[in-house]
Design a protein around this nucleic acid. Structure first.
Lengths: 210, 210
DNA sequence: TTTCACATGTGAAACTTTTCACATCACTAA
DNA sequence: TTAGTGATGTGAAAAGTTTCACATGTGAAA
């Protein structure tokens, strides 16, 4: 029951996607250095990561793709569908709705919420939209376990509180503010502004004098 | 000229935003533990981070907010405007356009590109849109230094190559594939699918047997 | 067979990041 | 003034992550 290191977990998610593609192309085996090439990292890193998953590679043959995929699934254990709610039907929210409900089978955004009555009571990208007042009710009834917050900085904390109240297990937060919530709830943040500033900084674009 | 550690850099970006807000509220001083509270981390971490920036806090008074902001700006050195191009005018692209060209002064998305002629030749959220064929030309002429990739997995690498060819310094990639590019170019990735899977995994949602 | 070439699996080293713990210092109040 | 309180700044320990290097093992070719 001990958890995989976070960084490794992220890479496993990526490997799995890459492996699915390879499988579709009809490939059956892959070397660590090939997977590394596809994932833009090193073969040592790949082997280290696959260790966590009890892989079973064969020297000079590599890893069986279907077996590896299966092992990763087993460890990440989301053979079961993950039911997600999205709060904040703006441009970003809509982007996520169309993105996920196109592609992913495992991850399903099954309800979206907004405080603007104009945006609720319809179906967007196959997802029902509700007024945010119904959040707790819908989340419970639909057995939703994860929330995505795509509202503005002003209402993010309020939304987070509602999600917690509704019994959510984890949150992905796109709002440009950190959220306070019980430590039992996993709280992941994507901060786009910071990411761009990071690119700018490490591009050496900003040549500091000292 | 030695660079700040990446994680610290990310937090500095956040501190700066928080400090701006505090300044607007008319506050002049802040303690490390207060900033920590606002940034959801610890006071030790905050002090460590501010060390990198040659801070000058005063015991029992805290840090002067304007000075601190100034120091961070100096180190992150983006007093100058950062000119950004966005490639891929889908839902996500539009979300980023409206988000940045509303708020940010420093970060400016000054050109957006798409391969669909329907989407080009107009202005979206104050940003001119061009056909992707004009990318190299526009990027050079407009002195754009950073590219954001919001196209699908299929065309991401091609777009990346074009951006590199056009002399970009850094890339922020939202496509669900890692990109190959020269190591001189900073290459940051936001993988939304992985982020959600990470939330699911660490929410303990996926109760593994072993 | 035997040999060779080359992948895997993994301790151990190296590096990065966070946390601890405490000397130092500035303000407050007696 | 002096003492006390509660900040800061920072070495050093701890925790997390990546890289190295090599013993081990497998398949292919002579």
């Amino acid at each position: 029951m001990n958890k995989i290191p976070p960084r490794t977990m992220e890479r496993l998610s990526m490997y799995r996607r890459i492996l699915s593609e390879l499988e579709q192309k009809g490939l059956h085996f892959i070397y660590s250095h090939q997977l590394a090439e596809l994932a833009s990292n090193t073969s040592a890193q790949v082997r280290r990561d696959l260790m966590e998953v009890n892989c079973a590679g064969i020297p000079r043959r590599g890893y069986r793709i279907p077996e590896l995929k299966e092992k990763i699934n087993e460890f990440l254990k989301d053979s079961e569908e993950i039911r997600v709610a999205l709060v904040g039907i703006g441009n970003l929210g809509r982007a996520l709705l169309s993105y996920f409900n196109m592609r992913s089978k495992r991850l399903k955004i099954v309800a979206a919420f907004d405080s603007d009555p104009e945006k609720t009571g319809r179906v967007i990208s196959g997802c029902r939209t509700y007024h945010v007042n119904d959040l707790e009710d819908v989340v419970r009834r639909q057995k939703i376990s994860i929330g995505i917050i795509t509202v503005g900085a002003g209402s993010a904390q309020k939304v987070a509180d509602m999600l917690v109240e509704a019994g959510i297990c984890g949150v992905l937060n796109f709002a440009p503010v950190p959220l306070k919530m019980p430590k039992t709830i996993h709280n992941e943040r994507i901060d786009i502004t910071t990411s761009i500033e990071k690119v700018a900084y490490f591009s050496g674009l900003n040549k500091r004098v000292q």
